[in-house]
Design a protein around this nucleic acid. Structure first.
Length: 287
DNA sequence: CAATCAACCTGGGTGC
DNA sequence: TGCACCCAGGTTGATT
């Protein structure tokens, strides 16, 4: 276990932009990128630009960033009237930088802007992408694939309860199922379940009314707490200006295996649920 | 229909 | 020192 702790403290690659991280980037973009004109597009990784680099370039060069939004973990831009969406997946970063600042080797897309600025897309694992959409109908179709969105009018206890009651799958994979509940990834799923004292393998439709209530509150609190700290940097997420988020020190359960549970003192355990690393307190979160 | 799983990637760890 | 192998995880798409 000592080895386990040491291993985790050395892991340098686990960004995981989830709702709070993407929301942080979105808010910073509102204050910086909006209004900039796109002068050119550079890439060394064709797959990052959809539908394909030439179409992507043609659609946006000469136009201005007008708005930015977020749905689940997706960033939504409008470049003039052209919808553009971006997904950071596991290791993507968006950076707003002066042209003269050096780029790192993970930078695979650069949007050259006016006023000597750049929007850089860096991605160690190259899973992320930016995509130009045809029109608002296509955007509606993309956004319609997601489930209930936290912090919107749709995210009611009634709707949350309906989602849980309709599935007998384990609660953790359901929390992370973007088509059901939008924006929750591995970190905030673990945090939410610890907060609500629910074991990650509990069948979703087996939760009591009280547990559903608790989880409903905990999901929102965990996400809100992450936003307040400008996201979690474990260890690669950086915000639009290249700064780390502060939420890592406020994590209650994620990657704390081997340490005492901050609620009951029992040793935090790590296991696998749905193929993903899952952290829980065996005393607080009974099966 | 639901659960499972490889594939997409890279770097950093371990074990031999 | 080197090298094969494993792991991290969001999402898609194929398979069971």
């Amino acid at each position: 276990m000592e080895a386990g702790r040491r291993l985790h403290s050395c892991v340098k690659i686990s960004p995981m932009p989830e709702l709070p991280e993407v929301e942080t980037i979105k808010r910073d973009i509102e204050k910086s990128l909006i209004g900039h004109k796109i002068l050119g597009v550079w890439t060394d990784w064709a797959k990052a630009l959809k539908p394909e680099p030439e179409v992507f370039k043609k659609a946006i060069v000469g136009k201005k960033f007008k708005s930015v939004g977020r749905r689940a973990k997706l960033l939504i831009f409008h470049v003039d009237s052209v919808p553009l969406v971006a997904h950071l997946k596991l290791s993507g970063r968006l950076l707003y930088r002066d042209q003269k600042e050096p780029t790192d080797k993970f930078t695979h897309v650069v949007l050259k802007l006016d006023r000597e600025k750049e929007l850089r897309f860096a991605d160690l694992r190259k899973f992320g992408w930016m995509k130009v959409l045809k029109d608002e109908d296509e955007l509606d179709a993309v956004l319609g694939e997601f489930g209930i969105e936290p912090f919107t009018a749709d995210f009611t206890l009634e709707n949350f309860s309906k989602v849980l009651q309709s599935k007998k799958t384990a609660i953790k994979p359901l929390l992370m199922d973007q088509s059901q509940i939008a924006g929750v990834g591995n970190i905030y799923a673990d945090e939410s379940l610890w907060c609500a004292m629910i074991h990650p393998l509990r069948s979703a439709n087996s939760l009591s009314e009280k547990e559903v209530n608790e989880l409903f509150t905990c999901v929102q609190d965990s996400l809100q707490s992450g936003i307040k700290d400008r996201g979690t940097s474990v260890d690669m997420y950086l915000d639009l200006f290249g700064e780390r988020g502060e939420h890592e020190k406020n994590l209650k359960i994620f990657r704390r295996d081997g340490s005492p549970c901050s609620r009951c003192g029992s040793e935090v355990k790590k296991t696998r649920v749905g193929g993903r690393g899952t952290h829980f307190c065996p005393k607080c979160q009974l099966k």
